[in-house]
Structures are given as structure tokens and as C-alpha cells.
């Protein structure tokens, strides 16, 4: 009868190692699962690995990205903004109450149009050309450009508007 089969598979020392490893893994997972969202060693690790991978592929291609025009990056640069701060700002201003916005928590409103693939749009609300500066100004005061719009002026600060615009301009591809 296979009494103690596990012991034979691993050996005494191996069993000890596996136990210690399992306990350490459990402890780190518990620590991570209890930590507040701002403390995200796992996420940081993943993004570090991601960045390293990107550098590696660039190096492999022997063709640094900086040489090519990257319109999306340039638009963000033009705005002097950080697109990754956009989603937080959008939650704060309640954009999701009216719009579906990929990557924004709880943003599944159907009052206004979905903003998926926004970077591919030609016009903003059918009025302004979809350029970074226009988008930023639209977000700050929509009724200024479209007096009959239902979209209110939400007292958006210039910096937040720039972040949100940068984020929206990073949304490419039809949903």
C-alpha cells in the first residue's frame, strides 16, 4: 500500500524545502492580498518585467523606437500629461456615469457615447476636430462649444483635462 508515497517522491530534505517554499509563497500572497492598492509590489514587479521585455525587444530589433514617429506618444507629450493618471481622474469626475470607457472602474454609462477607440475618432461630439488641445478644452467646458449638449461643465482643472485627454487618445481600435 502506498503509505508515505509522498516521502519517497521528495525525500526528507525535499519535503522540508517544499514545505518552506509553500509557506513562503503563502505568506507573500497573503501579504500582497492584504496590502493597500498603493502598495503593489507584484504590480510593480510585473511592470518592471514588462519594461525590461520592451527594452529587450527593441534591442533585438536593433531599431530603437525613438527613431520612428509615435503619434500617440507625441500627442501626450504635446499635452504635457500622463495618460496613466487619466482613469483615476475620470472616476473622480464621474465620467463613467454617462460613458463606457475601457480601463476606467465602473464606467459603463449609456447616457453618452462609448469612448472605446476614441483616438480613432475624427471629431469630438461632431463639433471639434479630435486634436489633443481641442479635446482638453472640450473636457474643461463642453457647453462652450456645444450650447445644447447634455454634457455638463464639471470644473475640470487644466492638468486633469490634459491627463484625461491623453488617456482617451491612447484608446485605439474599435471595441
Amino acid at each position: 500500500m502506498p503509505d508515505g508515497a509522498e516521502h519517497r517522491t521528495f525525500g526528507k530534505a525535499g519535503l522540508g524545502l517544499v514545505t518552506v517554499g509553500a509557506l513562503a509563497a503563502t505568506a507573500s500572497v497573503v501579504a500582497w492580498s492584504l496590502a493597500s492598492p498603493s502598495n503593489d509590489p507584484v504590480g510593480a514587479m510585473v511592470s518592471r518585467v514588462g519594461a525590461g521585455w520592451e527594452r529587450l525587444t527593441q534591442w533585438y530589433a536593433g531599431n530603437p523606437v525613438a527613431d520612428r514617429p509615435n503619434w500617440s506618444a507625441m500627442q501626450v507629450k504635446l499635452l504635457d500629461a500622463q495618460s496613466d493618471r487619466g482613469p483615476d481622474a475620470m472616476v473622480r469626475y464621474g465620467c463613467g456615469a454617462c460613458h463606457v470607457i475601457p480601463g476606467v472602474a465602473g464606467a459603463r454609462g449609456t447616457v453618452g457615447p462609448s469612448l472605446a477607440g476614441f483616438a480613432d475618432r475624427a471629431y469630438i461630439a461632431g463639433i471639434l476636430t479630435n486634436a489633443p488641445g481641442n479635446l482638453q478644452r472640450w473636457l474643461i467646458d463642453p457647453p462652450l462649444f456645444a450650447p445644447d449638449t447634455a454634457m455638463p461643465d464639471m470644473s475640470v482643472t487644466e492638468a486633469d483635462a490634459a491627463d484625461m485627454a491623453a488617456y482617451l487618445l491612447s484608446l485605439t481600435g474599435a471595441p
Partner: peptide
């Protein structure tokens, strides 16, 4: 609580 969410709330 902000104008954006309020408008969205009332409308839908």
C-alpha cells in the same frame, strides 16, 4: 458627488 455623476444619474 460631482456634476458629472449627477447628470448621468438623473439621465439614467
Amino acid at each position: 458627488m460631482n456634476v458629472g455623476n449627477l447628470a448621468g444619474w438623473i439621465a439614467d
